[in-house]
């Protein structure tokens, strides 16, 4: 049992446990915190995969920004009370997810499973090839690979900046983010009173209440005037 295998198992347990708690817990704030734990575990997996840049990006983007957005949204929609976690179709969805995982597991498990061979071979035949196929070619684990992996970030930066490769897509995603920022600020802006239905009905209720109070005050004054006039006339008489 190597160290990295132990680390992988710990990360798996943390990740899947936290994800299971995210989708079943009653308290939305706790769900956001479990989501953060799962993001941390995913960052750990990225480190195991020697994609260190993406581990740091996961911390920066997901935990440092998206999780905070989730927590703010939970606060702003008063979701801090306990909610019923699952809706009416939860049972069917659970069964369907389990079946889907079983199918994926059949295909992702390495070769000795006969079913996978048969199905994949059948697909290859359908596409007009031969039944037998090549398995994934893995790169060897030697110094060349280590060198290539070590300057992966540099090559990614070069590819993202080069317009012949991914530069145009980078500009497009910048535009997407800009539109997203402006759009979300506009959609979630604070509206003036009586602009939203809830505030409108509240404003109407307030107006009715004020009108009622005013009419009561007027009635009291009207009632007091004759009494005052009576008192004045009584005094006047004396």
């Amino acid at each position: 049992m190597e160290v990295s295998q132990i680390v992988f198992l710990i990360l798996t347990v943390t990740l899947l446990g936290a994800a299971a708690l995210v989708v079943t817990t009653k308290n939305l704030f706790h769900a956001a915190l479990y989501l953060i734990v799962s993001f941390f575990s995913v960052a750990g997996m990225y480190v195991l995969l020697e994609a260190g840049f993406f581990a740091a990006a996961q911390l920066l983007v997901y935990i440092g920004a998206i999780s905070i957005l989730f927590i703010f949204a939970v606060m702003l929609t008063r979701g801090t009370a306990l909610i019923t976690p699952l809706n009416s179709q939860a049972g069917a969805v659970g069964v369907m997810s389990a079946i889907m995982f079983a199918i994926l597991a059949v295909f992702l498990w390495p070769a000795p499973i006969r079913l996978q061979e048969v199905i994949l071979g059948g697909f290859r035949l359908l596409r007009g090839g031969t039944y037998g196929g090549e398995p994934w070619q893995f790169v060897p684990n030697n110094a060349d690979t280590a060198a290539v992996v070590n300057n992966a970030t540099l090559r990614l930066g070069a590819a993202l900046g080069d317009f012949a490769q991914y530069g145009a897509l980078l500009l497009l995603s910048g535009a997407l983010l800009l539109v997203g920022v402006i759009g979300s600020i506009w959609v979630a802006r604070e509206r003036k009173i009586a602009d939203t239905r809830a505030d409108r009905s509240e404003a109407a209720a307030d107006a009715r209440h004020e009108a009622q109070l005013e009419s009561e005050a007027e009635a009291r004054e009207a009632a007091a005037l004759p009494a005052g006039a009576h008192a004045a006339s009584v005094e006047g008489q004396h």
Binding site: F8, A19, L86, Q89, L104, L108
Partner: peptide, 29 residues
């Protein structure tokens, strides 16, 4: 890679995907 075969990562990703799918379809909020 250091003793971790590829299909371990793929299975974990598949499990996480199915959990996320369950959450997206079965939650009330």
């Amino acid at each position: 890679l250091n003793g971790i075969p590829l299909h371990w990562f793929l299975l974990v990703a598949a499990a996480l995907f199915c959990l996320g799918l369950f959450g997206a379809l079965a939650r009330k909020n």
